[in-house]
């Protein structure tokens, strides 16, 4: 059970997305963007594929997340530090751990709402054919996990700087590296100067590989483990950072 402090901080943070235009702008851009990319004949291949699956939808999720998740995560701590409310928050009987977890869960739940908003897509494929709903569910699960990992990265950079723009840019850069880590051009490049062990390690950090494997319908323990470790490590990093520079 969530403890009371985490619950109330979570609720406050979650509702704050709907008190400013940020939440609505995000939802509109995300839903419009992903719909457009999925169906637009030039880019999306939904109609060309002639099959009732959501693979063309999930193919674009990482790229939508790459720019939209940092926009959600950039204010998590930067805002709090800039406005000085962090002093208010951390002088209440709240530990940094509780605060980091509550804020992370609130932003994750918000992305959950955004993903849930794509439900007409499911109706569309169910109407058009006989899709494997298990695979669809796993696709959503993979998207949700990936959102969590990128939000944790974003939270870390938000704790690093008071400036939201800097936090946004750093998050985009690191998220891009994490998404692309397993791609052949990057792996070829780093294999020119790093031993194979490090190349394999780098490849295993690829968010996209793990995302793809769940999205294709293979839910293995190692994928879940990867996202759990990823989220935990970045959140832990945020806690250390906040402890160090909350007063700066």
């Amino acid at each position: 059970m969530m403890d009371r402090t985490v619950k109330h901080l979570f609720m406050k943070e979650f509702s704050s997305y709907f008190k400013t235009p940020l939440g609505y702008v995000f939802l509109v851009i995300f839903l419009f963007g992903i719909g457009y990319l999925t169906f637009e004949p030039g880019r999306g291949s939904f109609f060309y594929m002639r099959e009732a699956s959501m693979s063309s939808f999930f193919r674009y999720i990482p790229w939508m997340f790459l720019f939209l998740i940092p926009a959600v995560s950039m204010r998590l701590w930067s805002d709090e530090r800039k406005a000085g409310t962090i002093e208010l928050l951390l002088t209440m009987p709240v530990t940094i751990r509780q605060a980091v977890i509550a804020k992370f869960l609130a932003s994750w739940a918000f992305i959950g709402i955004a993903l849930a908003g794509t439900f007409p897509m499911i109706f569309t494929i169910v109407y058009l054919g006989n899709p494997d709903l298990g695979v669809v569910f796993l696709g959503y699960l993979a998207s949700f996990f990936m959102a969590g990992a990128l939000l944790a990265v974003g939270g870390f950079f938000s704790a690093l700087t008071k400036n939201q723009v800097v936090s946004f840019i750093l998050t985009v850069c690191v998220s891009f590296m994490l998404i692309m880590a397993g791609s052949p051009p990057i792996l070829d490049f780093i294999s020119t100067f790093l031993p194979k062990f490090f190349v394999d390690l780098f490849e295993s950090l690829s968010v996209l590989n793990h995302f793809d494997s769940i999205e294709r319908g293979v839910l293995s323990l190692s994928n879940i483990w990867f996202f759990t470790v990823m989220i935990t490590c970045w959140l832990y990093g945020s806690m250390i950072l906040l402890n160090e520079n909350k007063a700066n």
Binding site: K12, S16, K19, T20, A83, G84, T85, E87, L88, T91
Partner: peptide
């Protein structure tokens, strides 16, 4: 009970 300098508050509430 603590009133910080410049009284920071969650302005959207």
């Amino acid at each position: 009970g603590y009133v910080p300098e410049n009284a920071p508050l969650y302005e959207d509430m």
